[in-house]
Design a protein around this nucleic acid. Structure first.
Lengths: 94, 94, 94, 94
DNA sequence: TCGCCTGATAGTTGCC
DNA sequence: GGCAACTATCAGGCGA
């Protein structure tokens, strides 16, 4: 019997080792990324801005359309800009 | 009519303002806490350890007995060292 | 002598209690905020979007101008769309 | 000339793409890890405890002795248990 | 109802 | 030593 204190030790060990292995690889990639940022900096780029660009591209890639529709609606309701008619038009389209 | 694009603007504005007000107070408290940590540091205390002490007290207040039991069990199953009983003792004592 | 094991116990206790007290108040405020979101939901608002609106207002309030200048520059360099001037305008407006 | 608005577009694009590529791989690994936790759960393991075990193994690998020493000291100073003399004895041993 | 997923928070680390 | 970014953990909402 492989149980130790009621725990299937072999299964547990396997799970732990897989997680630790994957975590190491993940850590290695994080280091690689840091290295690229380091290179960027040495080429004169601003790493902080670079991060923003990448974050922006990621957000842009994602689909925010439906959310944005409601979002805009709320913003407009708050008189976030001075053109509420734009909002009315979009609402009418619903 | 207070609706703007189908949204009850007044209600919305009220909600947003209440949340923002509460958030500011919350932020002020967070700053106060940071200030206390700062004082602690100037009195020679190690803020990192202090955080651990407080987190521990919080956890102790809650129930973590059962968790620890399973925890010890898992650690033993992994035969983390060659004196499993000693390990269990140390874990329980932590 | 108030030292216990070389630690000024009274000072430490005072610090810990102040932090715990402030943390409780902070927690109470967090609960208040959650309550407002709950009310919002019962009034038909989408809490998720509401959070986004508030986050957006917060970001807007902060100063992103200088960063945005470089940001736009980078975006244009990436030819993020085929109307770089339009892109720059949109970014600046964000 | 490859500059766009004073930015070396080719270099920038290369950097961005490398980072995005590495980030995707990193994300994939994070998903793999989540999958292992999922399997663990389906085998009856408590994922939360499992995380603690792994974190513990990681910390054990590192050095945390000194921290623990101060930590215990602080806890004792707070009279966390009802045997302060035991604490004094341990301190005297230092 | 349970597990997933996102957003919030706390802790850690590295830079300045 | 403070600050800011990143990571990890946690909780609450959401959907199957």
């Amino acid at each position: 019997m492989s149980d130790v204190g009621g725990v299937a030790a072999d299964q547990l060990r396997s799970l732990v080792e897989r997680i630790e292995r994957l975590s190491e690889e993940k850590k290695a990639l994080a280091d690689d990324i840091a290295e690229v940022y380091s290179q960027a900096r040495s080429q004169g780029f601003d790493a902080k801005i670079l991060r923003k660009v990448i974050a922006r591209r990621k957000r842009d890639a994602a689909e925010l359309q439906e959310e944005d529709a409601i979002f805009s609606l709320y913003l407009e309701a708050l008189a976030f800009d001075k053109t509420p008619l734009g909002a009315a038009g979009r609402v009418a389209a619903e």
